[in-house]
Design a binder for these strands. Structure first.
Length: 275
DNA sequence: CGTTACGA
DNA sequence: TCGTAACGG
């Protein structure tokens, strides 16, 4: 489940064909951006050295607002037309995942406090990131900021990624943008990752900076390259585990792909695994 | 994350 | 002008 890192959904990056693109490739295009994913990213990363988020004079967290303001400005400057899609009510079968994440966050919060008290900034930052949670008026404030900036905001009835995917399938947007791969499972024909303009990421080890370019994933091409259907992709996700189910221990995307290709569908795979 | 300051 | 560190309250 990997918070600060980025991916919370099914990590299909290992098996899916991904292509680096330039921002100029997206000029004039409408992009349906997963707002919650973006918000979490900002809350996670925009922090001070010991992990403390940016706060205003009232003590309210402002990291997400800083992020939305500058990133949206930059996207507009690149000629991109962002549309932010916010989550609605999560499906009930996601409850277990939500509860688990809540626990992980609370635990991280404790570890953050401890590390901060010991003066271990690097350790503190790591746990602070994992403790990131949406709270208070963050959603309303982000929506208001986008509204006054003249950026369209869409309220999904449930999962934002599902809504964003639907918008792309309807041809109302060119692509869905998220760090997760789940939009592919919802059928988004094109998914974009790393939609950050400055695109510089600290590499895990030292203070080495690597240029990160936007990444385009074409659902049809990716499926064709793997030689599977979209239904089979969903089966792979189910084997690996999603926000909605646990998956099977010891099976990652690679093994799941092999198994699904060999047996055609998840039922046959499960039968084989039983024996 | 994205901007700003600053030394090379 | 560029690269890195510090800042953002």
């Amino acid at each position: 489940m990997n918070f600060g890192g980025a991916i919370m959904g099914v990590d299909l990056g290992d098996i899916f064909e991904r292509n680096e693109i330039e921002f100029s490739d997206l000029k004039g295009k409408v992009i349906a951006i997963d707002a919650y994913n973006t918000l979490y990213q900002f809350l996670s990363i925009i922090r001070q050295r010991d992990g403390t988020p940016l706060i205003d004079s009232h003590g309210e967290i402002t990291s997400h607002l800083s992020g939305f303001l500058y990133r949206t400005t930059n996207l507009i400057e690149e000629g991109i037309k962002p549309v932010f899609v916010f989550d609605g009510v999560p499906p009930e079968f996601k409850n277990k995942t939500i509860e688990e994440r809540k626990k992980i966050r609370a635990n991280a919060q404790e570890k953050w406090d401890e590390a901060k008290a010991r003066g271990e900034d690097k350790e503190a930052f790591k746990h602070a990131q994992a403790s990131s949670r949406i709270q208070g008026n963050m959603i309303e404030d982000a929506k208001l900021l986008l509204k006054v900036m003249g950026i369209p905001v869409i309220q999904a009835p449930s999962e934002g990624e599902a809504q964003a995917s639907s918008i792309v399938m309807d041809g109302k947007a060119y692509a869905a943008a998220s760090q997760d791969y789940d939009a592919l499972l919802f059928g988004a024909p094109v998914v974009l990752r790393n939609l950050a303009v400055t695109g510089k990421r600290k590499l895990a080890g030292k203070s080495i900076f690597v240029e990160v370019k936007p990444e385009l994933i074409d659902l049809k091409k990716g499926l064709a390259a793997m030689g599977i259907s979209r239904e089979q992709l969903v089966d792979i996700a189910l084997l690996v585990g999603t926000d909605y189910n646990d998956g099977i221990k010891g099976i990652g995307p690679r093994k799941a792909l092999k198994l699904i290709k060999k047996h055609t569908g998840i039922e046959a795979v499960l039968l084989e695994l039983k024996t």
